[in-house]
Design a protein around this nucleic acid. Structure first.
Lengths: 104, 104
DNA sequence: GGAATATATGAGTCTATAAGCATATAGTCA
DNA sequence: TGACTATATGCTTATAGACTCATATATTCC
């Protein structure tokens, strides 16, 4: 049985990888099937599938089956809030560094 | 030069590890030196030092020197917001699973 | 049932990460 | 200067992660 610390790090791990961030960015607009996702992000089908399943296990995505296709969605709205906050931090880091460079 | 995608995943990576989450939980109340942090979280001094430096590089922590001691702080308030959101998601996941279990 | 399509998985490789132990570096104070 | 304390780093080992290629498992439609 996983403890809270593990559950927390599993969710963060599921967000902490470039390919998975590309997937999340693409899923912003709503649910998409694997066949739409992997060409959009420019990764192999098998690799994309693994990342999607990994994010499912962590509780970050949910999926819905429709015929042959499987549609993935971002499960919790808080996931997108996290992504947005991280984008904000990155901006602050970049402008922060810039200031330092100008100051020297 | 790192691109935005890397900067974003670096920040998330810096949060996505149990030992580092313990450090962040401990730094909630304000700045602490390494000598306070590693006994509090129950990790080795060298291991703790590495994690702290890793989080510094990612832009998650900042540090201040005072004599022999080095005090670390959480650099951006958004970091704590991210941690809180993740805690919320974990709660939702747990109660969500519970509901499902009860429903079966 | 057989062809075609969508998704998942097995096996292998390569790289990254975490941790421990020992040691180096740097600052303080007598 | 030398002893002492706080922090960082070199080296090693163990484990996990990401990726690719090939193949398996559905599901649909003829």
């Amino acid at each position: 049985m996983k403890d809270l610390l593990e559950l927390r790090s599993d969710i963060l791990k599921a967000l902490a990888q470039p390919t998975r961030i590309k997937i999340l960015d693409f899923l912003r607009d709503g649910e998409r099937c694997v066949c739409e996702i992997f060409p959009a992000i420019g990764e192999e089908q098998s690799n994309t599938s693994r990342h999607l399943n990994m994010m499912m296990d962590a509780g970050v995505l949910s999926r819905r089956k429709e015929g042959l296709k499987i549609y993935y969605t971002i499960k919790h709205p808080e996931i997108l809030q996290v992504v947005d906050l991280v984008n904000l931090i990155v901006e602050e880091e970049i402008t922060g560094r810039h200031k330092l460079l100008k100051a020297v």
